[in-house]
Design a protein around this nucleic acid. Sequence first.
DNA 1: GCTTATTGCGCAATCA
DNA 2: CTGATTGCGCAATAAG
Lengths: 166, 166
Amino acid sequence: MSRPSQPKPTSADHNGVSVIQSQAHAAPSSSSSLPAALAGLQQVPQLVPAHPSSTGGKALPPSKMKKPSVDKDSDEYRQRRERNNLAVKKSRMRSKQKAMDTQQRVNELKEENERLEAKIKLLSKELSVLKDLFLEHAHNLADNVQPPAGPEGTSPASNNNPASAQ
Amino acid sequence: MSRPSQPKPTSADHNGVSVIQSQAHAAPSSSSSLPAALAGLQQVPQLVPAHPSSTGGKALPPSKMKKPSVDKDSDEYRQRRERNNLAVKKSRMRSKQKAMDTQQRVNELKEENERLEAKIKLLSKELSVLKDLFLEHAHNLADNVQPPAGPEGTSPASNNNPASAQ
DNA sequence: GCTTATTGCGCAATCA
DNA sequence: CTGATTGCGCAATAAG
């Protein structure tokens, strides 16, 4: 599918002198047609070619517009277009890829986040248990310098019930 | 491949009907803050040189044209185009917005991640301190029932309450 | 001042 | 049938 230089038949009427633009009016307030506001829009209020030149000349429609000589039939031109098209394709491909990568990153980060939160939860729990144990001990020591022989402190804070039920 | 309909000329026309007007329309107003206007792109609505409303054969030399319909000069056509252009613009805008949002999400998640990791670090530290204290204590108890009498170097866990963060 | 990369846009085919 | 998407090419810039 390379691009064999082709004579390009239909090129003749491209625009050369005529911007065949077809029909008149392109919706004057085009935006008015639809909720332009909704669509975003940054419309530039009519920018007229206010060129300082005297009678601008090109303001006359029925005349010929002197467009730069961009010979569309030129071989050079065709070649450049071709290259640009390629570049465009490449660029867009990259862009898309990047978007996908970003999306993926979001997923990864989300997963990571969950993992981290789980870990935090775990650590917090461990910590609270240990703290409780410590407090208990401290209380025991404070209350009585000679706590019961029972080393383990499975008892409510402060004084544990020596004569506990069972 | 994509367009088996025609011998793909290197032109903009998608099917041979020819996009005669090239993209010269003057964006009536719509987006674009681009300085393109500077180029003096003042395209004025104007009638095309000639087009019979009828099927005036297009300009396609030695080929066969199988898509005569689609009167570009039709009012209907123009209207549909305009609408589609709007839709396209809207769609693209959304697409872009979405991409940006996703990117932002990545940033937020990254931040969150850092925060969480910091928290984990803190908790881990606290935990290790407590554990050490605990172990020490346990050893003392196991080795000797009378820790206070022992060498003063290893003073009991004093009191220091690490529960003070954030 | 060239070339490539990006960007906005319109057209048309296709999807929904 | 209508709006939404998508591939593609053009042209104007931006970037190198």
